[in-house]
Write a protein that binds this DNA or RNA. Structure first.
Length: 763
DNA sequence: TGTATGGATATTTTT
DNA sequence: TATCCATACA
């Protein structure tokens, strides 16, 4: 049996597509990653494409990692030569090699959103921009848009002539860019912008990569912005050996899941793909393997209210399943209480694990109440988003030390830690040093080393000197042979007294911070042990700069997950609770009252579609009549998205009979559009009030897996063509296949699909 | 220089 | 409601 036999006809057509542009419109859960990975395998094995000539681009590290893993598993030797990476890390890799040709140093650092804000604050101060009239965030978003459109500060200034406001933006942009450069830093937008600029100005570099990347795949194409399009277009425009443009570009996306317009994603990249790349083959993947018919039908009903989408209807062979549930509660408090009780009930009575369940919401703020209830009921959970691990204060502090040691040019990092922990070096001192640095045209750190000579610093200089020698001491140690990164971070924690200070504080918060720092140390150790190239401080810092919270989601852990709808894209869960289905929450006020409400609502509707299609078995929608938002009580109607689902498709539950007044509920809370939308004949299927079973948050045992056709089981030794002999540690059923986890002594733990892996049992 | 206090301010955020 | 920031004071 060939690996391609497991594909449906459309998937197969996409996988076997030969040359030329290919647009795969892949609905939610239609197996797009599978198609991508199989296509890569096909190109290598059947078309003799050199793995070296393949580039696969994703948006998140998590997606890249998963793709890498799956590609490694189905491709034989040479899979490590395929570039599988995110847009941003692809750019970093290219720039590390060629950036000098556009006047930057190859050891540039990457500024994250927080760094950008800090820098912009400095810029505004410097330019006397009143941040009450023009706040940093809005300036940064103007700049971000400009970079997305590939508009340089000079061009921006030119276009701004005559407009006071725009001129201010232009000045800020120019100064901001100047300072980035002085710190030898690039922000996220720069990574893309500068790569395109490089390709436009350096033909040699462009040719090199065009020649290398003969086959390009892009995942989540609906979320690409303009620069990303430019980048892809440039890379894909290489000539083949006959001097022809082949555009061996394969993009996969779903216009219905485009939810990042606010961040510059241009939906026309996918809608007009066929215009940009002549002779495009279009393949639609409409069979969904994830959800029940009930869930999919509801999702289809909602999304078909959008105009201007590519026509497609998802269908499935899966069972009908339970109807989609909708419950409207009196208050947000009851909503949270009820959802969490239900979860507890599900886990206690059913064969369901915590990690089968997700609670999704529109805004991060909604997680609070839920979190309180989860703690109360002792339900293990993880919240994704809100505060990224790497944006925590203590983590940023330690990273700033590492950055300072690594690259003294990073002015922001040095300024961040100069007085952390407190050294009695205040704002006035920092300002003086800063002025001196600007005047002498040297970096802030360089100025610190000359503290004794800076006028007006007599007293403070004595405080600066120990700081400089601390940094210098650490710097010299890192150059010593055999000095590990682990030792450096330990030295920092010790020599600065950072840990000691936290320990002495003896509060719960300090304890959390210490744990976070330990986590950082772990990550550094992991990097040091697993890095393919010799581990360096710069390498670690780079990896860390491009990581998001969702990347850390570990499916193995047995806890429920809470996150925003945005973060949930690309994930799936058997049981999904989508809460806060209310006008004003979802769709949010901002979109209802926007200048272009139609467009904005359509984006919210796509978000709703994304939310619905995360669910595999059961989708529960909830709303509250009364909700506390920013200290104010709001009364909201159920979301219009609920009304877009025909009522026969939805099971209306009545919430807590003890409190609900039926007449009131049907009159004020439901819009006139669909009268009688609530079905009171059906009994409430809610766990009894006050239901609070005893349960410890310990791991629940997995149901015994049926082995069926496999001739090996957990604990057996098996042999794999590439990885050699290993021991089966787990087997789970996934679609038509079994997913077999095998621990190979030489290659580590691998997840393999039984159909492809051809594992042979060894006695 | 460090802390206290009032006041503004508030979607979503793959990197 | 909670959080962040600037300014005022000790």
């Amino acid at each position: 049996m060939s690996i391609y036999d497991t594909l449906n006809p459309e998937q197969k057509r996409a996988v076997l597509h030969d040359k030329g542009p290919l647009l795969i419109l892949a609905g939610a859960g239609s197996g797009k990653t599978r198609v991508l990975t199989h296509r890569i395998a096909y190109l290598i094995e059947e078309r003799d494409v050199n793995p070296w000539n393949i580039l696969a681009i994703t948006f998140t590290n998590k997606a890249a990692r998963e793709m890498r893993e799956r590609v490694d598993n189905i491709v034989g030797y040479g899979s490590e030569n395929i570039w599988v990476s995110t847009f941003h890390s692809t750019c970093v890799r290219i720039l590390r090699r060629f950036i000098e040709s556009i006047g930057y140093s190859r050891s540039f650092t990457i500024y994250d959103t927080d760094d950008q804000k800090t820098l912009m604050r400095e810029v505004c101060k410097f330019l006397n921009i009143d941040t009450k009239k023009m706040n940093e965030r809005s300036i940064l978003s103007v700049i971000s848009r400009a970079k997305d459109e590939m508009i340089s500060p000079e061009e921006f200034a030119l276009q701004a002539q005559g407009d006071y406001q725009q001129t201010k933006y232009a000045q800020a942009y120019s100064e901001y860019q100047k300072r980035l450069k002085a710190s030898n830093a690039l922000d996220f937008d720069d990574l893309l912008y500068k790569t395109v600029e490089l390709f436009q100005t350096n033909k040699e570099a462009l040719l090199y990569y065009q020649n290398r990347f003969r086959y390009i795949m892009v995942d989540e194409y609906q979320d690409t912005n303009n620069v990303q399009f430019q980048l892809i277009h440039l890379l894909a425009s290489g000539l083949n050996e006959y001097g022809e443009r082949e555009y061996n570009l394969c993009v996969v996306g779903d216009d219905d899941q485009s939810i990042y317009k606010f961040r510059g994603a241009n939906i026309y990249n996918i809608l007009n793909f066929e215009k940009a790349f002549p002779n495009t083959t279009v393949i639609k993947l409409e069979q969904n393997y994830r959800s029940t018919k009930s869930i999919l039908n509801a999702a289809n009903e909602v999304i078909c209210n959008n105009q201007g989408r590519k026509d497609k209807t998802l269908w499935t062979e899966n069972e009908e399943g339970e109807p989609v549930q909708f419950t409207q509660y009196e208050t947000d408090f009851e909503e949270a209480d009820s959802i969490t009780s239900e979860i507890q009930h599900l886990v206690n009575t059913g064969k369901i694990n915590y990690n089968d369940i997700a609670i999704l919401y529109r805004t991060n703020a909604q997680s609070r109440l839920l979190e309180e209830k989860l703690i109360l009921k002792n339900i293990p959970y993880k919240i994704i988003g809100s505060v990224n691990f790497y944006s925590r204060k203590e983590i940023k502090d330690i990273l700033a030390y590492l950055k300072t040691i690594d690259n003294g040019l990073d002015n922001l990092a040095v300024k961040r830690i100069i007085n952390v922990p407190r050294r009695g070096i205040g704002l006035t001192t920092v300002d003086r040093v800063n002025d001196y640095a600007l005047q002498q045209n040297i970096s802030f750190y360089e100025a610190l080393t000359r503290a004794q000579y800076i006028p007006g610093l007599e007293r403070s200089a004595s405080k600066i000197i120990p700081f400089v020698s601390l940094i210098e001491g650490l710097k010299s140690r890192i150059q010593q042979e055999g000095y590990s990164l682990r030792e450096i971070i330990d030295d920092i924690l010790d020599a600065t007294g950072y840990l000691r200070e936290l320990e002495e504080e003896n509060s719960e918060e300090a304890q959390d911070r210490i744990e976070n720092i330990n986590e950082l140390v772990n990550k550094l150790v992991t990097y040091e042990e697993n890095s393919l190239e010799p581990p360096t401080l710069s390498g670690f810092l780079e990896e860390v700069a491009l990581v998001s919270d969702i990347d850390n989601l570990n499916e193995e852990m047995n806890h429920i997950v809470l996150m925003t709808l945005h973060s949930a894209k690309g994930l799936e869960f058997p049981y999904v609770y989508l809460c806060g289905m209310e006008e004003g929450i979802f769709p949010g006020y901002m979109s209802i009252f926007a200048d272009n409400p139609v467009e904005e609502i359509e984006e919210e509707r796509r978000l709703c579609y994304v939310g619905f299609t995360r669910a595999m078995k059961r989708l529960s929608l909830t709303a509250a009549k009364q909700r506390m938002i920013r200290g104010e009580t709001q009364y909201n109607k159920p979301s219009r998205f609920i009304n877009e689902i025909p009522r026969y498709m939805i099971k209306m539950n009545t919430a807590s009979p003890r409190k609900v007044q039926f007449s009131k509920m049907s009159n004020d809370s439901i819009s006139d559009k669909s009268p009688g939308i609530l079905d009171f004949d059906k009994p409430a299927s809610k766990p009894q009030a006050g239901y609070r079973p005893y349960y410890t948050a310990e791991t629940k045992q997995f149901e015994g897996t049926k082995m069926g056709t496999l001739d090996y089981g957990v604990g057996d030794s098996v042999k794999h063509v590439k990885f050699g002999v290993g021991i089966v540690t787990d087997i789970t059923k996934g679609g038509k296949d079994y997913e077999v986890t095998v621990d190979f002594p030489k290659f580590g733990i691998k997840k393999l699909l039984s159909t492809f892996a051809n594992l042979i049992k060894i006695d």
